[in-house]
């Protein structure tokens, strides 16, 4: 059992997840990991190895059936309702698809990321917290798309849309970003751009980033640490230089796609 650094942002302790009752499929089997501020951690593994489940447990979208998730020293596993929403605000989520609202402007989409901080009658009936416009523009600037603020989100390319979704996550003022296969539906060039961006905000904003990837090669170049998962278990957790190619390919061996 490794000893966690005292300043860990997120840590999972022996996380277990069994879908569909006592005899269901075991998606997570004692998965433990820790994330420090400013660290970019990449999770690799075949489809169904539990990496997305792990991310969803950390994000508070799924309740693990064993173990616990600590965010900034606080156990979020048992939280519900308002307390859960507030805990979620600390973690910005990026999905495979950008999930923007196509008919609204890029700026409006980014402003939506600040809604959690502005619970009022006005925002409940559909008004945006305009006081956050400056902050939202700053976030758009960070992803290099400030010039697109007034454009309809539906008109963006896949890579641009994904960067706006990162700006939306940044507008939340998170302490960590959780990215679930953020480059899986992008062309190689846009994928590089998104990875560079995640790397940059991780370093400059001291954000912890957990990124689920399918490309070992991207992981090697951008990650501070790589976690390999197989059948719900953490197989290795080390710096890229310390991991042999064979160790990574062993994750995918004997698995029918």
């Amino acid at each position: 059992m490794p000893i966690w650094p005292a300043g860990a942002l997120i840590q999972t302790e022996a996380l277990g997840m069994r879908y569909g009752g006592a005899n269901g499929r075991l998606a997570l089997d004692g998965a433990s990991l820790a994330l420090a501020p400013g660290e970019l951690l990449v999770i690799l593994g075949h489809n169904g190895c539990g990496k997305s489940t792990l991310l969803k447990c950390v994000a508070g979208l799924l309740k693990p059936t064993a173990g616990r998730v600590m965010v900034a020293g606080r156990d979020i596993t048992g939280l519900t309702g308002r307390a859960l929403s507030e805990a979620r605000m600390a973690m910005g989520m990026v999905f495979q698809q950008a999930r923007l609202i196509g008919r609204r402007s890029v700026l409006a989409n980014v402003l939506c990321g600040t809604l959690g901080r502005h619970r009022s009658f006005a925002t409940a009936i559909g008004l945006l917290p305009r006081g956050e416009t400056g902050h939202a523009m700053h976030c758009l600037d960070q992803v290099g798309l400030a010039g697109f603020a007034a454009q309809r989100a539906g008109t963006l390319s896949g890579g641009q849309a994904q960067r706006v979704s990162i700006a939306r996550a940044l507008a939340q003022r998170p302490t960590a970003l959780l990215a679930d296969e953020p480059v899986a539906s992008l062309d190689p060039e846009a994928a590089e751009e998104v990875m560079r961006l995640l790397r940059r905000v991780s370093t400059t904003e001291r954000l912890g980033v957990i990124c689920v990837l399918h490309q070992p090669e991207l992981a090697r170049r951008y990650a501070d640490r790589i976690v390999g998962m197989r059948q719900g278990k953490v197989m290795f957790d080390a710096q890229p230089a310390a991991i042999a190619d064979a160790t990574i390919s062993a994750l995918y061996e004997g698995i029918m796609p």
Partner: peptide, 19 residues
């Protein structure tokens, strides 16, 4: 997609509905 995305930002139920 947008509904799930906004839920994870910590927005409330009514906010998710209207936005």
């Amino acid at each position: 997609g947008p509904v799930e995305a906004l839920t994870t930002t910590g927005a409330g139920r009514l906010q998710v509905f209207s936005h």
